[in-house]
């Protein structure tokens, strides 16, 4: 069964361990679990990525479509996020059980991406007021092993990095109409610039210390956490407190500092990996789930 249940003594065991900077699986408080990222796994999307963080497993697929821009921002494209919790992850996600969680995550993602500094939406505009690219990011959660938000944000950044928007040409037809024509070569794409894309870092307060990348058991022990979006340069794009407990106002700046450092490191490793992957020959077969 996927539902994690802890007895009282197990909870205290975890909390005491964390106080001594010793977590159940041997990590320190600021260590992440083993992360595996692979991009370009789903071939009929414009960009995709697969991520494994500990025992959380996600698949992100990005598809781009033509659409009309928001009248308030006629030169910009649009990004839409959608999260789907597969019942593979937890039987309680069957039917409409996972909707609350999906709505929550997609809301947060929208928040951190829809500001000017994350992704330059101007590059996604085609014809002002008429046509623009609409990027649909679909996140599929296959296994929940704790710390979903961080995993989702890393996977989304990797997928967006992998997304190739076709280089279309706009030609002027008669009487002001404009024709959009596709390039002949399907590989003629422009990749989305994810230099400033943020990554979420969740810092959970367990007992009196805070830990990063809480596993599902640890999540049950914590009752307050801070989620922040951090960019490569260490700037914060958004922040939210989650959970039913309370946070000491003096500990918040400390948590933010920790978050920023961790975020920067995450970005460095992720970028290195993405660069290596891009450098590899295109023909290599993706392992995916095999």
């Amino acid at each position: 069964m996927a539902k994690v249940m802890l007895g009282e003594s197990e909870k205290w065991f975890i909390i005491h361990g964390i106080q001594d900077d010793m977590r159940n699986d041997g990590r320190s408080c600021e260590d992440y679990r083993h992360i595996e990222v692979e991009t370009g796994v789903v071939s009929n999307t414009h960009g995709s990525s697969r991520l494994r963080l500990g025992s959380s497993e996600l698949l992100v697929g990005v598809k781009v479509e033509l659409g009309s821009p928001d009248p308030k921002a006629p030169n910009e494209g649009l990004i839409h996020f959608h999260v789907d919790c597969s019942p593979n992850a937890d039987p309680s996600f069957q039917g409409r059980g996972g909707e609350d969680l999906s709505a929550n995550i997609s809301c947060i993602l929208t928040r951190i991406y829809c500001n000017k500094s994350s992704i330059d939406l101007n590059t996604l505009g085609i014809i002002p007021h008429k046509q623009c690219w609409v990027v649909h990011v679909d996140v599929l959660i296959l296994e929940c092993g704790g710390n979903l938000l961080d995993a989702v944000s890393i996977a989304v950044k990797a997928a967006l990095h992998n997304t190739g928007v076709p280089n279309i040409q706009v030609t002027d037809g008669d009487e002001g109409t404009q024709e959009i024509s596709l390039p002949d070569d399907p590989n003629d794409v422009k990749f989305i610039n994810t230099v400033n894309a943020p990554v979420l870092v969740t810092i959970s307060k367990v007992g009196s210390r805070h830990v990063v990348d809480a596993s599902s058991e640890e999540e049950l022990c914590c009752n307050a956490s801070l989620v922040m979006g951090v960019t490569k340069r260490g700037r914060t794009t958004g922040m939210r407190k989650m959970g039913g407990g309370s946070l000491d106002p003096e500990s918040i700046p400390e948590m933010i500092e920790t978050g920023k450092n961790i975020g920067r490191q995450l970005h460095i490793s992720l970028d290195k990996l993405l660069k290596t992957e891009q450098g590899m020959a295109e023909d290599i077969e993706k392992a995916g789930y095999l």
């Binding site: 076709p166 959009i180 596709l182």
Partner: peptide
Amino acid sequence: KSKVIMVKTRSGKILKIVR
């Protein structure tokens, strides 16, 4: 091997078709 083609449907959608 796979063949990838980009198709523009009449309703304006751009599809990436993998065969």
